[in-house]
Structure formats: C-alpha cells, structure tokens
C-alpha cells in the first residue's frame, strides 16, 4: 500500500491512517501546542490550543483524523496569536498565582505560555472563588488552578477504573467534582498510586509532601522548553 502523506507548514510527512493530525505530527517530531491532549488517553479536544488550519479551515489537531493530502498550517503567526489568546483565557478564568504555586516550573500551562511568548493576561481577570480540598492524607486539590482539561477524569475512569473525578456545572460554572457525597477527596477511592493523581498538567491535583522539592533552576521546564518536553511525552519516551 502507498504511504499516505500530508504536509505541515509545507513539510511533507507520512502517517498511519488511524492517526490524528496531532499523532502524525508528534511521530514526525512536529510540536503542536496542547494541554488537554495526552497520548495515553482518548483524544478530547476541549482546550483548543492545538487549533491548526487544515486546507484553510480551523480544526483541532488532536481530534481530526489525518487524511491524505491535507495541507496543515501549524506554526504561523495567526495561529500562535490565537493560541496565546486561548492560553490567556485559561489564565484569567482561574486563579493562577505562579509565584506561590507548588507546581511552578513543572506546569504545562505555564510552560505553554512561555512557549507562545505570552507576557500578560490581556483580558480582565475573573478571580473566581474556588475550592481547596486538603482532606486526603496524600493528595491535595486546589481548584483555583483547574483548567477543565479532564485528564484526571479520563485517567481515573479509563485507567484506574474508579471514576473519582467528573466535571459538573455548565459554562463558566463548570467545575471539577469528586465521587463522594461529602464532596471530600478523602471519601473517594483515590490512592496516591493512581494515574489520576499524577496526570494534572497544572497544580490542581498535587501529591502532598513533595512541593518545592526541586529548586528553581532544576525544575522540569526551567531549561527545557515545552516543545521538546511534550514531543518526548507524545512519542512515548
């Protein structure tokens, strides 16, 4: 069978017919910004950071199947400006106080913003009142930082088989909930060894007693831009 190909920013690459554009790009070493996507989980398509142009139309790279002859635009000024705005939306929607955050330096949202050259939050901040749940002995929830990517929801449901997390509410009131009548994480089945406890791209789900272990300068994204780090992750390293 002939190898199928598409182009990203004019560069031809071949792909497997079962791949999405994101997967085809990652396999070929092309970084497309993303937050809700993770190669271990079912594509989701909610953050919209991976918006690309396919044959002139906007599409999410993480959910759109790769197809023969697609002309994909990825690293363009237009798309990166648009991605910057979407990232800024995520920043103003929650409460992201990087200077005091345990995950600062390891945070995908923050590193993605760096990668896009984002300097400010542009929009007015919402400063919502969100919940902190420290009830569990090993795991901490700080919903100020939740970006509703549903990675924990997918991990807990599809990998841990526990469905500890879910998204309830609607619109700007959407929020993470846990599977307990009390609403407290300690009353759920989650354990520190669960995948869901470790998959959060931001600092909304934290493992207790591990904060600030690495000094500034040695943290994940301090000298390692998001492009390279996420490509490694997507390629399964």
């Amino acid at each position: 069978m002939d190898q199928k190909t598409l182009t990203i920013d004019g560069v031809e690459l071949s792909f497997d017919p079962r791949q999405t554009i994101m997967e085809a790009a990652a396999a070929a070493g092309v970084y497309i910004p993303h937050l809700c996507h993770h190669p271990d989980f079912k594509p989701h398509g909610s953050c919209k950071l991976c918006t690309v142009k396919v044959n002139g139309r906007f599409a999410s790279a993480c959910t759109l199947p790769a197809a023969e002859g697609q002309e994909v635009l990825n690293k363009t000024l237009e798309l990166n400006q648009l991605r910057t705005r979407i990232t800024q939306m995520l920043f103003v929607e929650g409460n992201h106080f990087c200077p005091g955050c345990e995950i600062s330096g390891h945070c995908k949202l923050q590193a993605t913003a760096y990668g896009l050259g984002m300097l400010d939050s542009h929009f007015p901040h919402f400063y919502p009142a969100r919940r902190v749940d420290a009830s569990h002995p090993d795991i901490m929830l700080d919903l100020d930082r939740c970006i509703l990517c549903e990675l924990c929801v997918r991990a807990s449901r599809d990998m841990d088989g526990k469905s500890v997390f879910g998204i309830a509410g609607r619109g700007m009131e959407s929020h993470l909930v846990v599977a307990a009548e009390s609403g407290a994480l300690v009353d759920t089945l989650i354990e520190v060894s669960d995948r869901a406890a470790h998959v959060c791209p931001v600092g909304a789900i934290l493992i207790k007693h591990t904060a600030y272990e690495k000094p500034i300068g040695q943290r994940r994204y301090d000298h390692h831009p998001i492009q390279a780090a996420l490509l490694q992750e997507d390629q399964g390293d």
Binding site: N95, H96, F97, P99, G100, D120, S121, H125, Y127
Partner: peptide, 8 residues
Amino acid sequence: INGGIPAM
C-alpha cells in the same frame, strides 16, 4: 500584570 500575591 495579574494582581499577583495581593490579589489572593
């Protein structure tokens, strides 16, 4: 830029 720590 975003209110920072005082905005907490």
